[in-house]
Write a protein that binds this DNA or RNA. Structure first.
Length: 226
DNA sequence: GCATTAACCACAG
DNA sequence: CTGTGGTTAATGC
């Protein structure tokens, strides 16, 4: 595969915008762009981490194996880095990333990436910023999810999908019922029932995977009350 | 006690 | 994988 031309790439991360022409050229020699189909694994928990992965298009779930079942940690929408903590923080991936839609990701050699952090403070700062923001939203989600009952937890995820991911009241559910359960730490049966409940009380409309939030105010209420 | 919540199991599409 | 019904354990009036 020929080297990527990162200099003129339109999907640079905020950090990469700080790179010099020379650094971008270096980046090009060690960056490979790969397409993934919906459902394909981008990197696997337990494998050796040798690349930084930057998602340029698509939606991805970050998940790890629990003692009982899979646990979805986070949904990540492009553009975003997928595994900075697991790639830099350990030699082996602590979690997996799976494409929820057709996606494109750049694989960047860890050595090069580390050099940029050491050499370029603007680049390093953006990376730290990214990590900090993610950590904050994760803290928020986990405190929220751990203190709400099922309706509140499900409502929160639906609101999040609607507001943050799709920016619409109407969207196709990117997660199966089982995955929703893995996300909000519940059982698939409970999620299934709760979704029907929401539909029955006209808060949402669900046909197949198509979901429409009809009564946003009420869903918001349920979300906040827990 | 009684009601509520939600997990677990089993079975059927 | 999803939906449903029955059962059960924990928790809160």
């Amino acid at each position: 595969m020929p080297n990527q031309n990162c200099i003129h790439c339109g999907s640079k991360s905020d950090a990469e915008k700080h790179l010099t022409q020379g650094e971008l050229t270096t980046l090009g020699t060690s960056c490979a762009r790969v397409n993934f189909k919906k459902g394909e694994l981008i990197f696997r928990e337990g494998n050796v981490a040798t690349n930084i992965v930057y998602l340029t298009s698509g939606l991805v779930k970050i998940h790890m194996k629990g003692p009982v079942s899979d646990k979805i940690l986070r949904l990540t929408k492009a553009p975003a880095y997928l595994g900075l903590p697991t790639t830099i923080g350990d030699k082996v991936n602590q979690y997996s990333a799976t494409a929820l839609s057709n996606s494109t990701a750049c694989f960047i050699s860890l050595d090069i990436f580390r050099d940029f952090i050491v050499q370029n403070s603007g680049f390093a700062y953006e990376i730290i910023l990214d990590l900090c923001r993610n950590e904050l939203t994760d803290y928020q989600r986990y405190t929220n999810l751990s203190q709400k009952q099922l309706p509140g937890r499900l409502a929160e995820i639906l609101m999040c999908l609607s507001e943050k991911i799709f920016e619409s009241n109407r969207f196709e559910l990117p997660l199966s019922i089982t995955e929703l359960a893995d996300f909000i730490s519940s059982s698939r049966e409970s999620v299934s029932r709760q979704l029907s409940e929401f539909a029955k009380s006209k808060i949402i409309k669900l046909s197949g995977r198509e979901l429409e939030i009809v009564n946003t105010e009420l869903l918001q209420m349920i979300c906040m009350k827990g």
